[in-house]
């Protein structure tokens, strides 16, 4: 098993290879490439329906060099449950094709639609049952594959095709579900947020998630140039800004004796220690077309203030939980 350093990992071949058909600059494949770099051995991947799945498996082609399966939109965690149960059964019975591998890791990739909304039940069930698998939420904050419709993961104010910024209603009127808290409340052994702007952090957390027994959850914020409306070269930059503005703080949460223990990750810890480094949310919002109505035709001061305050409050709550 290779150690997680940029040097080592840069030599590891990709599990997801060239020739996929996602938009240029898509973060989804950056997430997958970085997470899959951290695998420790034989691994089976499942994908929920969504941009990643449709673009990496267009028959007769596949971009997956590891065993990979897609079944449907809302059931990726149930699909993984069955695979994980098979691994257990074959190890127990000492027979069957997977019995020969000392470990087989199961990783599931799903979008925000497949996680916050239609797939939440299957995910909740799989976590409650304690299946040993790693669930990676690729959160681009809308149903991108079907044309940028709002989801439970779409943040307040964002314009999508089913929460358009109109003359009366300014984008989504509801807030983003606190998915990490929902998952942590299940007693999930390991939950972490990840951001591809910090590849080493992503890979270290992914390795941890894979190694931990039981269900683990990685939440990546995945900027989408098409849906968020920014030039494709800005994908990683905008992701980075989400963390620098504390819109998407990076942290880990383990369970110790039935209690969740939060820890801020380096980029967010640095901000907690030196709050003057925290960037205003405008820096993040103004780069994205989905928030255009916050600034044009006129600046919506009240709205910006409200949003900044809610981000500040959530950041403060997280800092308290992490004891900083």
């Amino acid at each position: 098993m290779s150690e997680i350093t940029l040097k080592e990992m840069s030599r590891k071949p990709d599990a997801l290879i060239c020739g996929g058909r996602l938009c240029a600059g898509c973060d989804e494949t950056i997430v997958v490439r970085q997470v899959m770099k951290a695998t420790r051995g034989p691994t089976i991947v499942t994908s929920a329906t969504g941009c990643l799945e449709v673009s990496t498996s267009i028959f007769p082609y596949t971009s997956w060099e590891v065993p990979w399966m897609h079944c449907a939109f809302e059931n990726v965690a149930a699909l993984a449950s069955g695979i994980e149960a098979t691994i257990k059964a074959m190890h127990k019975k000492k027979e069957g094709p997977l019995a020969k591998y000392p470990t087989v890791d199961v990783i599931s990739f799903a979008g925000d639609g497949g996680t916050y909304d239609i797939g939440l039940q299957a995910l909740s069930g799989a976590i409650e049952r304690g299946h040993d698998f790693t669930y990676v939420l690729i959160d681009n904050e809308a149903y991108m594959n079907t044309g940028i419709q709002r989801s439970g993961g779409t943040p307040f104010g964002a314009s999508t095709t089913t929460s358009p910024a109109g003359k009366v209603i300014l984008g989504k009127t509801e807030t983003k579900k606190p998915i990490d808290e929902i998952i942590i409340a299940h007693g999930t052994p390991y939950v972490a947020t990840i951001n591809t702007a910090w590849p080493l952090d992503v890979m270290k957390k992914a390795r941890k998630a894979i190694e931990v027994d039981g269900p683990t959850f990685l939440h990546s914020l995945a900027p989408c140039s098409r849906g968020w409306r920014f030039p494709p070269e800005k994908t990683v930059e905008i992701g980075r800004l989400a963390t620098q503005t504390c819109v998407f703080p990076l942290f880990e949460c383990r369970q110790e004796k039935g209690k969740p223990v939060y820890e801020l990750s380096a980029p967010s810890l640095a901000i907690a220690k030196r709050p003057e480094n925290k960037k205003p949310i405008e820096a993040y919002l103004e780069q994205q077309g989905r928030y255009r109505h916050f600034f044009r035709p006129a600046r919506k001061e009240a709205l910006l203030k409200e949003l900044q305050e809610s981000i500040d409050t959530r950041w403060q709550i997280l800092c308290e939980k992490a004891g900083v």
């Binding site: 449950s81 069955g82 149960a85 257990k88 909740s124 799989a126």
Partner: peptide
Amino acid sequence: VGSEFVAVESEHSALSACVGASAAGARA
């Protein structure tokens, strides 16, 4: 029995788990 019993949270997940299991080589 040596079977893993997966007490799923719905029939949708029951069959989905069976699909995953069967694809992984199991009798499901």
